[in-house]
C-alpha cells in the first residue's frame, strides 16, 4: 500500500507503521490465528527485499494479503506495474516462499501475483519450487544468482554511503573514517557510535549500522574487529585520497535506488485506481 511505503522515508514513523500495517492488511477470515503467529509471519516477510530497490517488500507496500490456514500460508503480492521484470518478481516471490517455510509449522506457501503479465507462470512456478530457468526456458539465459548478487552489491553501496554520511554529519572526519576499524563501532539499542581513542563520534541511528553490517556479512566481506570500517564491495579498503571519488560513485548508485523507489511508490499508488474501478474486458 502506497501510503505505508511513503512513510518509510521517515524514521520516526517506522515503529508505528509496522504494527498498523499488520492490523490493516492481514486478512484473518477464520479468526483463529493468534497475533503472535501473524507478527512472526510479517517479521519474516520484512526480510524479503525488492532486489532492485534494496528495500523490504513490506515497507514498499507490495504485500497485499497474508492469510494463514494451519500450516499453509497464502501471500498475495501487488507490484507497481503490470510489466515488472519477471526475474525481479521471481526473486521476490521465491524469497517469500523461502522465508516463510523457514518458520516451524509452516509447510506450504502459495504466492500469488495480482495483475502481472506473468502471474500464472510465476505463481505456480514459485509455489512448486521451480527455478526461474525452468519457468522461462527459452528466455532466461542464466539463473538468477548473478542478478541477485549484482543488486546485493548495489544495496551495499547504498548502505555504505548512508553510514559514511551519517558518521560525517555526527562529526567524524574523513581521516577518522578511513583509519577506523569495525571494532570501533559501538552499538546500543537504537543508537550507534564510532569510538576513537579519546572521544566518540555519534550517535547515529542503529539501523544504519545494522543494515551495513548485515549486507557486509552477506557479501562475505571481512567482519573481524580489526577489519577496516569502510570496505568497497570487492573487499578493498578505501584510501584517504580516493575517498571523495569513491563516495561520488556510491552516490550515483544511491540516487538511482532512491529515484527508482520514488517512482515505484508513485506507480503503486496510481495502480490502486484500477482495482477501484470496474474492469472492462473488451478484448474477450
Amino acid at each position: 500500500m502506497a501510503h505505508t511505503a511513503k512513510s518509510a522515508d521517515k524514521p520516526c514513523a517506522r515503529a508505528v507503521h509496522r504494527s498498523t500495517l499488520v492490523t490493516r492488511t492481514v486478512a484473518d477470515p477464520n479468526g483463529k490465528d493468534g497475533p503472535m503467529e501473524q507478527s512472526a509471519l510479517w517479521a519474516q516477510l520484512e526480510r524479503v527485499l525488492d532486489p532492485e530497490l534494496d528495500e523490504s517488500i513490506v515497507r514498499l507496500g507490495f504485500v497485499r494479503r497474508l492469510e494463514q490456514d494451519g500450516s499453509s500460508v497464502r501471500v498475495v503480492l501487488r507490484l507497481p506495474t503490470y510489466w515488472c521484470s519477471p526475474n525481479f518478481v521471481y526473486l521476490m516471490a521465491d524469497g517469500v516462499r523461502r522465508v516463510l517455510t523457514e518458520l516451524p509449522g509452516i509447510e506450504s506457501v502459495r504466492v500469488e501475483l495480482e495483475e502481472h503479465f506473468a502471474s500464472e507462470e510465476i505463481s505456480s512456478g514459485v509455489t512448486s519450487g521451480r527455478s526461474f530457468r525452468e519457468l522461462f526456458p527459452t528466455e532466461a539465459q542464466e539463473e538468477l544468482d548473478e542478478l541477485r548478487y549484482r543488486f546485493l552489491v548495489k544495496g551495499y553501496a547504498s548502505r555504505l554511503l548512508v553510514l559514511v554520511q551519517a558518521l560525517r554529519s555526527a562529526g567524524a572526519s574523513d581521516d577518522e573514517l578511513v583509519e577506523s576499524s569495525l571494532g570501533q563501532l559501538e552499538h546500543t539499542g537504537d543508537l550507534a557510535w564510532l569510538v576513537l581513542d579519546d572521544r566518540r563520534r555519534g550517535p547515529v541511528r542503529g539501523r544504519i549500522v545494522e543494515r551495513y553490517l548485515v549486507r557486509r556479512a552477506e557479501l562475505g566481506l571481512p567482519m573481524l574487529p580489526e577489519s577496516p570500517l569502510l570496505l568497497l564491495a570487492d573487499g578493498q579498503p578505501i584510501a584517504r585520497e580516493r575517498l571523495t571519488e569513491e563516495l561520488r560513485r556510491l552516490r550515483a548508485t544511491v540516487v538511482n535506488l532512491r529515484a527508482s523507489t520514488a517512482l515505484c511508490e508513485a506507480l503503486l499508488h496510481s495502480r490502486q485506481q484500477w482495482w477501484q474501478s470496474e474492469r472492462k474486458e473488451v478484448w474477450r
Binding site: S85, P86, F136, E139
Partner: peptide, 12 residues
C-alpha cells in the same frame, strides 16, 4: 528504461 519486459535478456 523502467518497467518493460524482457526477461534476463537485458531487463537489468
Amino acid at each position: 528504461g523502467p518497467t518493460v519486459y524482457p526477461l534476463s535478456k537485458d531487463a537489468f
